[in-house]
Design a binder for these strands. Structure first.
Lengths: 131, 131
DNA sequence: TAGTAAGTAGTAATGATTCCTATTTATATT
DNA sequence: AATATAAATAGGAATCATTACTACTTACTA
C-alpha cells in the first residue's frame, strides 16, 4: 500500500484518543491538520486501517465508532449520556462449548455492558444480582 | 396505551421468528396481513414494543435488528454470511468489579461472538486458544 | 353515539455512509 | 532529476435506513 499523509493523520487521531470517535469527529480533527481533507477520504482510510488491524470499529446507535485500542476489552455504555468507557475486563466465554455445540469458529467478540455511569446512576447500586 | 391491530401483528411477527429481522422484513411480513400498513407504523411500533420490554433490539452492520427472545442470551455472528445464531449461553462477567471499579450500574448486556458458522468455517476448528 | 386523543398511511426529510470522477501524488524506472 | 503510472484524494452526488410530518382514521370514554 502506498504511503498517504491523510492516512497517517487519521491513524494518529484515532490511536491517540479513548473517546471512541465516529467518522465525523475524526474528519473535524483531521481538518485541523489538513484543511481541505474530504470526508470520503476519512471513511475510506478508517476502513483500510480497520481491515489491516490497526484500529477496530463497532456500531453504536446509528453510527460506526472507531477504537485505537485493539486489545480484547469490554465497553461500558451509559444509557443516559451515551459515554463509552473502556474496561480492563477480558472476554470470558466457553469457547470449546461454542465450537462443539454450535459448530462455530469464534474469532472475535463484542461485549457491551449497558447501564448508568457514575454521573447518572440514581443511587448507590445495590449489591443483589438483579441482572 | 390504546390497542392497535397493527401493533399486535408486528409483535406476533417478531415474537414468532428466530431470524432477528430488521424493520423492512417485518414490514413485508406485516403486509401479508394488512395490505396497506405503512413502514413508519412498523418502525414506531417496534420502538414501542422495545421500550415496554416485549422485544429487544441490537445494531447489526448498518441496521437495527429485533429479537422476540428477551432472555439473556448471546449471539454468534458469521462474518461470511451474516447469520445470527442464538445461544443458550448466559452472560458471565464480574458485576461487582464493574460496580466497584467503574462506579457503573449495569442493567443489560450485548454479547456477540464473531466468527464462522458451520457452513463457512474452512476446516475443523483447532483446539488451541488462539483468541 | 359523540367527542377526542392516540394511532395510521403516505410521503417528505434527514443523516450516516458510499459512490463517482477529474485531479493529484507516491513511487518505480529511466 | 524527469517521466510514467497506478493509487489516493477532493468534492460532490447518490443511497439507504430511519425519522418527521400531517391529514385522516379509530379505540375508547362519558
Amino acid at each position: 500500500m502506498r504511503f498517504s499523509y491523510q492516512r497517517e493523520v487519521i491513524k494518529n487521531i484515532v490511536c491517540s484518543t479513548k473517546s471512541h470517535p465516529n467518522a465525523d469527529w475524526v474528519f473535524n480533527e483531521a481538518k485541523k491538520k489538513i484543511k481541505n481533507i474530504s470526508l470520503g477520504t476519512v471513511y475510506r482510510n478508517l476502513k483500510i486501517l480497520e481491515s489491516n488491524g490497526t484500529i477496530k470499529s463497532f456500531h453504536d446507535s446509528s453510527q460506526v465508532r472507531y477504537d485505537g485500542n485493539v486489545e480484547d476489552h469490554h465497553h461500558l455504555k451509559c444509557i443516559e449520556c451515551g459515554i463509552l468507557i473502556d474496561t480492563d475486563i477480558k472476554s470470558d466465554y466457553d469457547r470449546e462449548k461454542i465450537i462443539k455445540n454450535y459448530e462455530f469458529e469464534p474469532n472475535d467478540i463484542e461485549f457491551f455492558i449497558i447501564g448508568k455511569c457514575k454521573k447518572h446512576k440514581t443511587q448507590t447500586t445495590k449489591k443483589n444480582k438483579e441482572l
